[in-house]
């Protein structure tokens, strides 16, 4: 531990749901400590009623995202040393733009409903193809899909997005990013319906290109570029007589 770091962390944790208050805890600072470690230590040693969500602890499952000192983050891969103030203060809140279930746990239903609404799932053709599809990795479509495919559904982008806060119908960066990966899937047979789904009033054209999603995505995905890709795809689709 660096000598400039405090030995104890002053942690404020949101308690409640839509209404509530911050509760203060003091937690020992440890080497290589993550924000999730801090929450777990509070829950195990100081207040067993604290609710939060985690599973893998290694940045794969996307369940431990919270707002840490005002920034949405995946807490399992966020070290205290990069998130705490120089005085050792941490303020932990549930993700913005979600309904809070309790304390730091949020309801993800609306978030994933919007993935469904954006047709963020593979649509197979009615007839099974005669052979496996050949998708060369170097093709532009596959590379565009690859750039966006590693989303873990943590909700950080959805929490960071101002348009989601303003417009309840907006599908949000994660759902549109997922739709973009499928627009670039040459095997998919549901493109017309998908493009129509992302073309409406809550669709990709609502994006203001603030790039908060891209800035905060822990997987370094750029949903803003995916959404821009959807706008381009819709433009050409419209010229061919598609969704208007």
């Amino acid at each position: 531990m660096r000598t400039s770091e405090t030995e104890m962390l002053a942690v404020e944790v949101w308690r409640g749901a839509a209404t509530g208050t911050f509760q203060s805890f003091t937690v020992p600072r440890r080497q290589n400590q993550t924000v999730l470690d801090v929450v777990t230590e509070i829950q195990r040693d100081q207040d067993a009623t604290l609710s939060y969500r985690f599973a893998c602890r290694v940045g794969m499952c996307g369940s431990c995202a919270m707002v840490v000192n005002g920034r949405p983050r995946w807490t399992c891969r966020t070290r205290v040393s990069e998130a705490a103030t120089p005085e050792g203060a941490l303020r932990l809140e549930p993700l913005r733009n979600f309904t809070v279930v309790k304390d730091l746990a949020v309801d993800m239903v609306q978030f994933f409903d919007k993935w469904r609404d954006a047709h963020g799932h593979f649509e197979p053709a009615a007839q099974r193809p005669a052979d496996f599809a050949v998708v060369p990795p170097a093709t532009p479509a596959r590379q565009a899909a690859d750039a966006a495919i590693e989303c873990i559904g943590c909700g950080v982008c959805y929490s960071a997005c101002d348009v989601v806060a303003w417009d309840k119908d907006y599908l949000g960066p994660a759902a549109l990013n997922r739709a973009w990966t499928l627009v670039n899937d040459v095997r998919d047979a549901g493109q017309d319906a998908r493009l129509a789904a992302v073309a409406g009033d809550g669709g990709c054209q609502c994006c203001h290109t603030h790039m908060s999603c891209t800035s905060f995505c822990p997987k370094a995905i750029a949903p803003t570029y995916s959404i821009a890709g959807l706008k381009r795809a819709l433009f050409w689709h419209m010229l061919k007589g598609g969704a208007r």
Partner: peptide, 8 residues
């Protein structure tokens, strides 16, 4: 916003 409004 629909594509037509967006382009317009």
């Amino acid at each position: 916003m629909t594509p037509v409004l967006f382009i317009a």
